[in-house]
Design a protein around this nucleic acid. Structure first.
Lengths: 210, 210
DNA sequence: ATAGATCTGTGTCTTTGGTTACCGTAATCC
DNA sequence: GGATTACGGTAACCAAAGACACAGATCTAT
């Protein structure tokens, strides 16, 4: 696992910092579908993603969901970080999209390293920057695009994140992520199939050319 | 103006830091409606808001707009900050909602202070935190709420930010902020008027009880 | 005062997407 | 093997909001 740590952060972190992370960090392996963090949880450590992908989503009072974005290798969840620092409850739910390796770093260290390591400061900033931009994209998507386009974007992203052009999800699961209904998703997928952009099967979709 | 600086940041910044800001910062007064920053601009300094309010909005390729959030006293625009640090173009437009006083701080100082002052680090983090939360609220709003509710929320916020229960805007202007059409806004406002929640006039709306 | 521009109200129609209902088929479970 | 459940296809209907058209009111400029 420490190897993974070096591989992922060698370029941006000081060696001393990597050693410190290896020392105090808790390494965790999770499998696809596991909930890493839920709305209302208190958070005492922040996750650095060594491999795999995590999906981050938002839920309203009625339990309606919406996918916000994915975290990929080397990234961390700024929303979580923000919660840590503010000692507030999590505002989001994080679920492993694929099997993933994570190192959990206690919050106190976070602050300490901020003063001590430039590499860490930059990393934390860049994370915030990236998350803000992802959130802006999410806003754009739901504000300016219609469902057809959002679905296509969603499928593309899914193929990229999973590195597999078979999407192993039911229409209902896709509907949850896009915050719409199963019937609507089926309808639009059928349309895309007729346009030869994908092939529909039970429990999976083969993406041909989006 | 320096008085304003002390008044606004006394509680959270070290005295030395405030002195440094006073020294290198450029004080600017803007009047309502002035564009502070536009999409595509390069940014070399970040704004600290001493008084007034700034509205921050997003635009898509077709020129459709959407209000993201307001900045109020003591706040700064993290999206701008993110652009500064990343040396990328602005992703957003910022317009003075009311007459405002601002101090502009050069980016280089930002990094320097980050290592030097704990108060500054905390401030910058808290800003990111606040902006992320505002953006999450925006997402919630457009994803989960219908236009009726969004309009009511918008009007409430407007009253609060301007500290005036007369909203001096045309229906068209409101429609731009909510990314909808003038006709729809007129329709919904009329409905609210019939419910005695507000009184409609030419060029302004008096909010009674939302 | 007159002409033009701006703002608001309203009726009608269309589109997008959500809802309900029902069916066939594939998987699963005794 | 028969019952049950999960998944996907499809039709019919509905609701929210956007598009268009036009009228009346009010403001502005000359």
């Amino acid at each position: 696992m420490v190897t993974e740590l070096y591989k992922t952060f060698d370029a941006q972190f000081e060696l001393d910092l990597i050693d410190e992370i290896a020392e105090v960090g808790k390494f965790v392996e999770v499998s696809a579908g596991e909930i890493l963090m839920d709305i209302g949880n208190y958070i005492k450590s922040m996750p650095l993603l060594l491999s795999g992908a995590i999906k981050v989503l938002r839920e309203d009072e009625e339990g309606d969901e919406l996918l916000l974005y994915y975290l990929e290798q080397g990234e961390t969840c700024s929303v979580t970080m923000a919660c840590c620092m503010g000692h507030t409850k999590s505002e989001i739910r994080a679920i492993a999209e694929t099997d993933s390796m994570i190192v959990m770093v206690p919050v106190q260290k976070m602050e300490e390293w901020m003063a001590k390591y430039k590499g860490w400061r930059n990393y934390v900033f860049e994370s915030y920057h990236n998350r803000l931009n992802e959130l802006l994209n999410t806003v754009d998507s739901i504000a300016f695009k219609n469902l057809d386009q959002r679905l296509v974007d969603y499928l593309k992203k899914k193929v990229e994140v999973n590195n597999d052009n078979r999407i192993r999800n039911t229409h209902q699961e896709i509907a949850y992520d896009l915050h719409t209904s199963r019937v609507v998703v089926s309808r639009l997928l059928k349309k895309l199939e007729k346009m030869k952009k994908l092939a529909l099967h039970r429990n999976y979709i083969r993406v041909l050319d989006l």
